[in-house]
């Protein structure tokens, strides 16, 4: 890289499109502001006080001008509005086949959990050429995961899951940063994203190896934290069975219906009295101060893995 960087790396087709949008918009900025700069200078020279010039018929109002310089720039902006809003919406609809990675932010580090159970801190290894979906959770304050090379950022808000997806196409090591002010060491809460070829990624997974996938780690927690005592197959307590639950609709005790997504599972573990499944007593204790966000994400992964299994009859 040269000593004087002007432009950040592009690590995905999406980055390139954002750059096109930004450059095209810059052209529009120049077109809209140049007349102001040029005319101001010309007028200041030509009509300088004391200088003779033709000052007859000064104009003090012209409705046509007013309307045209209000409407034309606005219409030009609208083109860009449609363009950028389309990209933004696309960025909020992750494809279904994405590789899912769980991210937990806390003061002042990033934890990443791969589906195979591999964990890393402040470093993220992901393959290029397939969509990656990051599920973001915060243990304490608001953070923000920002990867300039991907032109993407998303706040990580405590109390809920947010997400970010990308489809990178250039191998390399790129910076990731926290861009929402989060306290004392905000400025050093960063790390690197390693975009690897699929084969390198497979090799990395192997050497980072772990005996248990994320879902199995969740299953272990499910037993050790006592969840299975009520939700397990042999339980006598009247608790909802979790097989085949994920992604399906759940009728609640107040008559409404929710989809059992990650956020619902999380809220049910940490705030069990909020959305009680219809037909079950409101007896589950909260795990608010027992489980950290990364444990909760493991349980979510476990319960998600149960989705494939047939739903047992209550």
């Amino acid at each position: 890289m040269s000593a004087l960087p002007f432009w950040p790396h592009e690590a995905s087709a999406y980055s390139a499109e954002i750059d096109h949008l930004a450059l095209a918009f810059t052209v529009l900025i120049v077109l809209l502001s140049a007349p102001v700069f040029v005319l101001m200078i010309i007028f200041a020279v030509k009509y300088r006080r004391g200088r003779t010039a033709d000052r007859r018929h000064p104009v003090n109002s012209r409705i046509g001008f007013e309307i045209s310089w209000a409407v034309i720039p606005f219409a030009a902006m609208l083109v860009f509005y449609v363009w950028s809003t389309r990209l933004y919406f696309q960025q909020h609809h992750p494809p279904g086949n994405a590789l899912e990675i769980q991210v937990v932010a806390k003061q002042w580090m990033w934890k990443f959990q791969h589906p195979g159970g591999q964990r890393e801190i402040n470093e993220l290894h992901v393959p290029i050429g397939r969509p990656i979906l990051l599920t973001l959770a915060s243990q304490d304050v608001i953070h923000d995961l920002y990867v300039p090379a991907l032109r993407l950022k998303q706040d990580v808000v405590p109390g809920r899951y947010t997400s970010l997806w990308f489809d990178a196409d250039t191998v390399g090591v790129y910076r990731l940063q926290c861009s929402q002010f989060c306290g004392a060491d905000h400025a050093v809460m960063g790390g690197y994203v390693h975009l690897l070829s699929p084969s390198d990624y497979a090799r990395w997974l192997e050497q980072a190896g772990t005996d248990m996938s994320l879902a199995s780690q969740g299953a272990a927690l499910f037993r050790t934290r006592g969840c299975s005592g009520c939700h397990g197959a042999a339980a006598t307590v009247k608790a909802p069975k979790l097989e085949g639950l994920f992604g399906h609709e759940v009728p609640l005790s107040d008559g409404s219906v929710v989809t059992a997504d990650a956020q619902y599972i999380r809220d049910s573990i940490l705030m069990p009295h909020a959305q009680v499944a219809a037909g079950y007593p409101d007896i589950m204790p909260t795990f608010q101060n027992v489980l950290a966000e990364d444990d909760v994400l493991k349980l979510v992964a476990y319960i998600k893995s149960l989705a494939a299994e047939p739903r047992s009859k209550p």
Binding site: I18, A22, I29, S84, Q91, D144, L152, K153, S179
Partner: peptide, 13 residues
């Protein structure tokens, strides 16, 4: 530029 949603995702904050 900042009002443009997609560009803002890059340059916000």
């Amino acid at each position: 530029v900042l009002a443009m949603l997609a560009v803002d995702m890059h340059v916000h904050d």
